[in-house]
Design a protein around this nucleic acid. Structure first.
Lengths: 138, 138
DNA sequence: CTTTGTGCAAATTCTTTGCACCAAA
DNA sequence: TTTGGTGCAAAGAATTTGCACAAAG
């Protein structure tokens, strides 16, 4: 089975009606695990889907997040970024090149939801900033 | 000594030339620990400083962050927020009312900088989302 | 003087909205 | 045929830029 059909199936499991556009966006996120921006997704897909609109990309990403099929990252000041990996992991952004990378193997305690008398906490986001090796050596 | 003069002194310690505008922005951040947006700071200060421009507020906040006198929070999708408290603590945003609160007393391990072969990490940001009690009961 | 900071207006960028058309059930 | 999805254009909001004037040293 190809990735398009796998993605189609995945969306149904997540209770998302799989249109061609939605499947393409989700498939793109699943294959390109670089935390793309809305624009990057739109620019990557539009050559093969000339009528695709950015509005649909926005709508689809909102839907994917609401249904728990993806997460929005607030690590890049400039743009929202999206990640198909909703497992517990952190992110790193290089303040020089802006690339966003996964940080796996963090202690599970980091993702524990703290008990707080005033707030009911649902999600945890852990973000690191710094410089990547490539930028450092230039 | 009043808070204005204390702030003035603080800016000098941080190697920031203390103009009236810069001192006012920093003082506002130090007194109002509610993680205000640029607009909130501007609207709060402009009655007493009618010529203040939002550009100056932007410039000043950038400078404060670069000099380590404040931090920018990327927890609110809509706007950047600023915090004069640069000690290790987390933040919570209520997805209903949008208010951003401090989360103190988190385990110090959470703020440890992980060693990573590819990245030199400088800062850690820990953000929680959920619902606050007030919104819950409404 | 010379450098640095401020503030206005305009421009840019990201995101949302309104609405007409299309597609699927 | 009804509901929901898509896509265009326009609107809205946040932030940045260019430039002239003001302030400080």
């Amino acid at each position: 089975m190809n990735t398009y059909m796998q993605t189609h199936k995945f969306l149904i499991q997540k209770n998302i009606k799989p249109s061609v556009q939605r499947t393409a966006v989700m498939e793109y996120l699943m294959i390109n695990r670089v935390h793309p921006t809305v624009d990057e997704i739109y620019l990557a897909l539009s050559p093969d889907m000339p009528t695709l609109s950015k509005t649909t990309v926005y709508n689809t990403l909102d839907l994917l997040v609401r249904k728990g099929a993806a997460q929005m990252l607030l690590i890049d000041e400039k743009n929202a970024r999206y990640d198909a990996d909703i497992s517990k992991h952190g992110h790193f952004i290089c303040q020089s090149c802006g690339k966003v990378s996964d940080i796996f193997n963090l202690k599970p305690e980091l993702f524990e939801i703290p008990k707080h008398p005033q707030y009911t906490i649902n999600t945890v986001e852990i973000s690191y900033t710094g410089i990547c090796n490539e930028c450092k050596s230039n």
